[in-house]
Write a protein that binds this DNA or RNA. Sequence first.
DNA 1: AAGCAATATTTGAAATGTCAAAGGTTTCGC
DNA 2: GCGAAACCTTTGACATTTCAAATATTGCTT
Lengths: 178, 178
Amino acid sequence: MQDLSRIMAEADSETVDLEIIVQGAQEGKKQELRLWLRMLSTTKLVSQEVRRRLRAEFGATLPQFDLMAQLYREGDGLRLGELSKRTMVTNGNVTGLVERLEADGMVLRVTPDGDRRVTVAKLTPKGEKLFGTMAAAHEGWLRDMMADVDPAVIAELWKDIGEVKTSVSNHLSGVDFD
Amino acid sequence: MQDLSRIMAEADSETVDLEIIVQGAQEGKKQELRLWLRMLSTTKLVSQEVRRRLRAEFGATLPQFDLMAQLYREGDGLRLGELSKRTMVTNGNVTGLVERLEADGMVLRVTPDGDRRVTVAKLTPKGEKLFGTMAAAHEGWLRDMMADVDPAVIAELWKDIGEVKTSVSNHLSGVDFD
DNA sequence: AAGCAATATTTGAAATGTCAAAGGTTTCGC
DNA sequence: GCGAAACCTTTGACATTTCAAATATTGCTT
């Protein structure tokens, strides 16, 4: 944490009302915040359950599963940069993930002849087989977890969250300082 | 990754049938998976934006912000175990988070007289002030990001995701091996 | 052909994340 | 009160995460 003095000075000059800021999410003013907190906690809940089961049943991690899912649907493999975009994982992170998956024999790394900057990752047969098993289980877990939710609600949620995603995408700050 | 041979054997003996037998299964079967993938990617998108801004504007991290939010609404402080539950962060992780926040002067650690097993974390005045500023900004970011979504949809989403969360909560596997 | 910008991946530092095991403390049962 | 069980936090080993800087390679410009 850096640059505190400047920030504190700002806070001082404003005298933000500390009582109201976090609390009053009930009153309609903070619908977005309230929704976000609920989305976040729900996502964490599901993620942790999925992670726990992937680990217990397959000894795999969620990021590994995600990465393999992308490779699974592109039989010819993907460049690491592509993988990074699709999994929303940083480049540096993909390097390590692929490294470990390769060590486990799930993934193969190849440098194509045309361009030696590039590394293409590809599932091995072993990786494909394991992922197939995991994917089927994974789908079942989700169906179970959401079993009490009306299918119509699920469809509605899918649509509406799509709207949220679009809105968010259109309001991202590239990189800006104040 | 461990225990592969057993898992592979299972996969072999099952030969999962990718063709779907039940009627209407193409559309209905994977609704939950589809919803989950969309929830996950949307949450990642928002998280990354929030993280980027917290860092750029306040030099703080998202987990730190989360933790401070919990302490903010409990002026008397919270035991680390409580913090762990509320932030959905493991115990060991809370230790480190609080350590760093204490080093930054945002948080105070106290061992109450009654029970020396316990550590209570509490925001310092400096921490309170900074959090107040961050919380106000944070709320604004979310309002901006979701600006294109109809308020009625936001309210609906909040309600429906609540249903999802309840369902998931009721279908968690404590700890089970197969 | 030399130089330089653009592209693609890796590396390194710091923080966060999980899990399991280890430490102290308290409390309960006897 | 003693010893064991229960409780709370810390520690340690790894994996994942981000960002920024460093490498390496290609392609463009002149």
